[in-house]
Design a protein around this nucleic acid. Structure first.
Lengths: 345, 345
DNA sequence: CTGAAAGCGCTTACAG
DNA sequence: CTGAAAGCGCTTACAG
């Protein structure tokens, strides 16, 4: 017969357990459980003795053990691109508030726009048995989540739709927003309009490019290849793209920037230019109104995106919902000056 | 004899367990465990059969159960003020990268600058048995953590020191940074300099005010009470504070802003003013260089703050460290124009 | 190379 | 009002 398994080398020192509390208070384990969880059916005197033992021992319930028995972890996961990006901070914060209202903890992680890392993170969260998963996808194939979803992990995609699986998604009207932003430039007399966006495999980038094309087509303006540049949002790449569009015999007179990272770099390029170039950016950003000229943007509400997705997730956890749905939130054009400059050159 | 306890109403559906995999593969539980964990001592043929069963069943190891047995959760917690604040995004991201390098997951939560909420969050993380805790404190009494720290939860404070307990802390040189920023204004001829900061109970706010006082004292300039305003960083409060200092018979000719939230609001107030007022802000922020004038700041490195604290936490988890230490990181004055304006009025 | 038994710290479902 | 037994899904420490 094997010896009693020795206690694992724990970093927690030897934390007291309910058993220890029970022994000290001279009661049964279940009574301690009742007191700890505020369940009824314990006399005031017994409760006092248990409380004293808890404090003397410095006991804190081990929620890992609790989770194992109960089946729900009261936690949800959020996989996003990069917490350092000002777009995701408010989004994550909004999700956290909804989670908190439901008594759940939020675990978020950054995919760094790497599909492998997205998968690794999402599955690690599943292994920790989060009740639900919010994903801002980096990749375009999410079949790896099928067993998890089938096993009951509520899943909602945010900002970009899932790839090759049917799932809830909450996103902004990227096509319509870009279209209206570009139409705004056209209305102010521009015809040679550049588009600088994120990598084309990213859904939002592709949709915004499509919005640009639609607006140009609506106005009957043929688009030159040299006017469109998609790629990483690294400042160096964006700067070069902008400079190319702005030079040569037929430079663009206006630029539509595909996201906040791009807009900021383009603003820097334009600031060094002697002639005025119009600019509309997708995504609002702090201080956009204080620049000269103020930067006209197509704003989306990151907080609302997160809140809406988290609400949907918890309704799924409540078992209220059935079929996956696509929820599209409107964008808003905010004019501040840069988008109203007339064409020059 | 009681019946076998029924399976709890799980939201996970009925996920397959190692036992199910073992049954399907026709092997013992331990063999499945070996395969899942990549342990040696399994023949290629057995391993293949187990892998097939895993895939057929859609098995994923339950890390909650694993954690319970092993004692370490491979996760750390980060309690910060507000994830939507651009200062904390990069800090959190830096911590995440260090955690990832150590194979740990990061759980972060916002205290919303509320001491009760900080405590609630920190203790919830302890109940989930995070291996370590990184705290940007909202409160000034952390004795509630004593039982946890004694039980082995590695704890490192970030940005602000712990209150009433002895613990590691990694912070910026708030006093020295503010002092140099104010000295810079004095060097440019200012004597009537205002200070607008966060609530005085927040350590960084108090230290930066102290730096302001030191610089003024160094220069032999007596400070008027009307020149100092501390409180919430709500735009309305800050705006009023700035406007008061800037009006009256003896208005200030320069303002030192105590953090990034304050700076942004002060910039807005100054933009509407007809006369130039000098400004130096604590904390750098995006686009500070593109404003007219560019905003001179005392910059701290949020990413480095997070990285340093996380490194320290993991060294504590390795058992390398003993006595709590205070690590102070230098700040850097970045001149961009607003801090070099001469006094007017 | 393989697996049965015991246990991690809780909760469930009972019985008294 | 109270508590003993069984079990959540794994890993540990063995023995074969």
């Amino acid at each position: 017969m094997p010896e009693t398994a020795r206690r694992p080398e724990s970093r927690y020192g030897n934390r007291p357990t309910m058993k220890d509390v029970a022994a000290r208070a001279g009661v049964g384990l279940k009574t301690v459980s009742r007191v700890v969880n505020g369940e009824p059916g314990v006399t005031a005197d017994t409760e006092r003795r248990v409380q004293e033992a808890i404090e003397a021992l410095g006991f804190r319930r081990n929620d890992s053990a609790r989770v194992l028995r109960k089946g729900r972890t009261a936690s949800i996961g959020l996989v996003l691109e990069d917490l350092a990006d000002p777009f995701y901070g408010p989004l994550s914060r909004a999700v956290e508030e909804v989670a908190r209202a439901h008594g759940a903890l939020l675990i978020n992680g950054s995919s760094a726009e790497d599909p492998d890392r997205e998968q690794e993170l999402a599955l690690a969260l599943c292994a920790r048995r989060v009740d639900g998963l919010l994903i801002i996808p980096a990749g375009d194939d999410h079949r790896y989540l099928e067993p998890e979803i089938r096993a009951g992990v509520a899943t909602v995609f945010v900002d970009r739709p899932a790839g090759r699986i049917d799932a809830d998604v909450v996103l902004s009207d990227n096509h319509g927003g870009a279209r209206s932003g570009v139409a705004h430039l056209i209305a102010h007399g521009h015809r040679r309009i550049g588009f600088i966006g994120d990598m084309p495999r990213i859904h939002t980038a592709a949709e915004r490019l499509r919005g640009y094309r639609t607006a140009m087509e609506d106005a009957g303006i043929p688009v030159a290849d040299a006017w469109m540049s998609l790629g990483v949002t690294d400042p160096e790449r964006v700067r070069r793209a902008a400079e190319e569009m702005l030079s040569g015999p037929d430079p663009v007179t206006a630029i539509f920037a595909g996201n906040n990272r791009v807009t900021v770099t383009v603003v820097r390029v334009l600031a060094r230019l002697s002639r005025p170039v119009a600019l509309v950016g997708f995504d609002d950003f702090e201080l956009a109104d204080l620049l000269r000229p103020g930067v006209t943007v197509v704003a989306q509400d990151a907080g609302r995106l997160g809140r809406t997705a988290a609400d949907r997730l918890f309704r799924r956890l409540d078992g209220t919902l059935v079929a996956p749905e696509r929820i599209e939130l409107p964008t808003r054009l905010i004019t501040r000056g840069s988008g109203e400059l007339p064409p020059v050159g």
